[in-house]
Amino acid sequence: VEVSPDIYQQVRDELKRASVSQAVFARVAFNRTQGLLSEILRKEEDPRTASQSLLVNLRAMQNFLNLPEVERDRIYQ
Rank of each mutant, 00 (worst) to 15 (best):
A18V: 10
Q52V: 09
E71C: 05
T49L: 12
P47H: 05
D13C: 03
S53P: 11
E45T: 10
A18F: 05
T33Q: 08
N63P: 01
L65V: 06
S4I: 13
N57I: 13
E71N: 13
A29S: 13
E45C: 09
L15W: 02
V1G: 06
E2Q: 07
E69V: 11
R59M: 12
E44G: 11
M61A: 06
L67W: 07
V28A: 10
L55R: 10
S21Y: 03
R59C: 10
N63W: 04
Q52G: 13
D73F: 05
D73G: 04
N57E: 08
Q10G: 07
N66D: 14
Q34I: 06
V28D: 01
A60L: 10
D73Q: 04
E71Y: 04
Q34D: 14
R74Y: 06
S53V: 12
S19R: 15
D13Q: 15
I7E: 00
R42Q: 14
Q10K: 07
Q52K: 09
R42H: 07
Q62F: 04
E69M: 09
V56H: 15
E69A: 09
L54Q: 08
D46V: 05
T49E: 08
E14F: 01
Q77H: 14
E2P: 13
K16E: 10
K16Y: 14
F64R: 02
K43Y: 06
R32C: 15
V28H: 04
N57K: 09
A50V: 10
D13S: 15
A60C: 12
V20H: 00
Y76W: 04
Q10C: 07
Q9C: 08
S19L: 13
S4N: 15
R48H: 13
F64C: 00
E2C: 15
K43N: 07
L36P: 07
I75G: 09
N31Y: 06
A18H: 06
A23L: 11
I75E: 15
L67V: 07
S19Y: 10
L41S: 02
E69N: 09
S21V: 04
V70K: 15
Q9P: 05
V20Y: 03
N31P: 06
V20M: 04
V3I: 15
F30P: 00
S53Y: 09
N31G: 10
A60I: 08
R74N: 07
V1W: 03
E2N: 15
F64H: 07
E45D: 13
V70P: 14
V20R: 01
L15G: 00
R12S: 13
Y8C: 03
Y8M: 03
Y76L: 02
Q9K: 15
E39P: 02
P47E: 02
Q10Y: 09
P47K: 00
F30A: 06
Q62M: 07
N63H: 05
E45S: 08
S53R: 10
V28Q: 05
F30N: 05
V20C: 11
F64Y: 05
T49Y: 15
S38A: 14
R59Q: 14
I40R: 01
D13G: 15
E71F: 06
Q62H: 09
V1C: 06
Y76D: 00
V28K: 03
R17C: 01
V20G: 02
A23C: 13
E71W: 04
E45G: 05
K43R: 12
V11R: 00
A60Q: 11
S38V: 09
E2W: 12
D6N: 11
F64I: 05
F30Q: 03
V1R: 03
V1D: 05
E14M: 00
R72A: 01
V11D: 02
A23S: 12
S51V: 07
V3M: 14
R12G: 03
L36C: 14
A26F: 03
D46F: 04
R72C: 01
Q52N: 09
A23T: 12
T33E: 14
S51A: 09
V20N: 00
D46M: 04
E39V: 04
V11L: 09
R48Q: 10
V20A: 04
Q34S: 09
P68Q: 12
Q10I: 09
G35Q: 15
V3N: 04
L41W: 00
K43P: 01
T49N: 11
E71K: 09
A60D: 12
L55D: 07
Q62T: 11
P5Q: 11
R72I: 01
N57L: 09
N57W: 07
G35P: 10
S38Y: 14
R27W: 08
L67H: 12
A50Y: 03
N57M: 09
V3L: 13
R17D: 00
S21M: 03
N57Q: 12
N31W: 02
L55E: 08
R59L: 12
M61I: 13
P68V: 04
R59D: 06
L15V: 15
N66T: 12
L65Q: 02
S21Q: 04
Q9V: 14
D73V: 03
R42V: 07
T49P: 01
V70D: 15
Q22K: 11
L55N: 04
I75T: 08
L36R: 15
Q10A: 14
R74P: 02
G35S: 15
L58M: 05
S53H: 07
K16I: 13
E2A: 06
R72Q: 00
S19W: 08
Q10N: 12
D46E: 11
N66I: 05
S19C: 15
V20I: 15
S38M: 09
R17W: 01
Q34F: 08
N63T: 10
E14I: 01
L37C: 06
V70Q: 14
A18L: 04
P47A: 05
L15Y: 02
L65Y: 02
T49S: 13
Q62C: 05
S51K: 11
Q62N: 08
E45Y: 07
V56I: 15
Q52P: 13
S51R: 09
S38F: 06
Q9R: 14
L58V: 04
A26L: 04
M61V: 10
F30R: 02
R74T: 12
A60H: 14
K43T: 08
F64G: 00
Q22V: 10
A50D: 03
R72D: 00
I40D: 01
D73M: 05
L65M: 13
L15F: 09
S53G: 13
V70L: 12
L15K: 00
Q77M: 15
D46C: 12
S38E: 12
N31K: 15
N66Q: 11
I75K: 13
R27T: 12
L41G: 01
R12T: 10
Q9T: 14
L67Q: 12
